[in-house]
Amino acid sequence: MQDYLWLEKYTVLDKSNEKIIKELGIQPWFHPYFDVAKNRIQKLVNRYGTHQDAADTFLDFLEEEYEYIENED
């Protein structure tokens, strides 16, 4: 668990998409969904506080956005 403590303090909103891609190793097919995932993070931060701005939450949202669009067809 100690290995993942950095996720709790990871700041998505203050980083460029390029930096997030590099740090989290995000695959290219997810790149078009960054802005929507970041908007969802911002809404959580506005409502519940900055502890919501973490990599694990961002990755969950990114995957949800990808699956939503891909399954829409």
Rank of each mutant, 00 (worst) to 15 (best):
N39K: 13
I26W: 01
L59D: 05
I41L: 02
I69R: 10
E64G: 05
K19H: 08
P32S: 13
E70V: 15
G49Q: 05
R47E: 08
I41A: 01
Y4T: 13
K9F: 05
M1Y: 08
M1A: 15
D53A: 08
Q52D: 06
T11L: 07
T57G: 01
H31R: 03
Y4A: 14
G49P: 00
V45G: 02
K15C: 00
D56K: 05
Y4G: 10
D56H: 09
F61G: 08
E63K: 06
V12D: 00
N46A: 13
L44W: 06
E67P: 00
L24S: 10
Y66D: 05
Y68A: 15
S16F: 04
L7I: 12
E65D: 14
E23H: 04
Y68V: 10
L62W: 02
D60S: 07
L24H: 03
M1Q: 12
I69K: 15
L13F: 03
D73I: 14
L13K: 00
D35K: 14
E72T: 13
I20Q: 01
F30K: 04
I26P: 01
E67T: 14
F58H: 01
Y66P: 01
E70R: 13
Y33E: 12
K9D: 14
A55H: 04
P28C: 06
Y10K: 06
I69N: 10
L24A: 09
F61Q: 09
Y33R: 06
Q52T: 09
F61R: 07
D56P: 01
D35S: 15
D3K: 09
E72V: 11
Q27T: 07
I20V: 14
I20M: 06
D60E: 12
H31M: 01
W6H: 11
V36S: 13
Y48Q: 10
I41T: 02
Y66A: 13
W6I: 12
Y33A: 10
P28E: 11
G25N: 05
H31G: 03
I26V: 12
D53W: 03
Y4F: 13
I21E: 05
A55P: 00
E63T: 08
V12R: 00
I26N: 01
A54W: 00
Q27H: 12
R47S: 13
T11K: 06
D53F: 00
T50Y: 05
D14P: 03
E23Y: 03
N17W: 05
R40N: 11
L59E: 08
K22F: 04
Y66Q: 08
L44F: 09
F58C: 04
E63Y: 09
A37D: 02
L5W: 06
A55S: 09
I69P: 04
L62V: 08
E70Y: 10
F61I: 09
I69F: 14
A55W: 00
Y4V: 10
I21G: 06
Y10T: 04
L59I: 13
E64T: 10
K15N: 03
D53M: 03
N17H: 10
M1I: 12
K22H: 06
Q52S: 14
T11P: 00
H51F: 06
L62C: 11
M1S: 14
N39I: 11
Y68W: 09
K38A: 06
F30P: 02
K19W: 05
V36W: 08
T11V: 11
K9L: 07
Q42V: 04
I20N: 05
L62N: 07
V45H: 05
F34L: 02
Q52K: 13
S16A: 13
D3Y: 07
V36M: 11
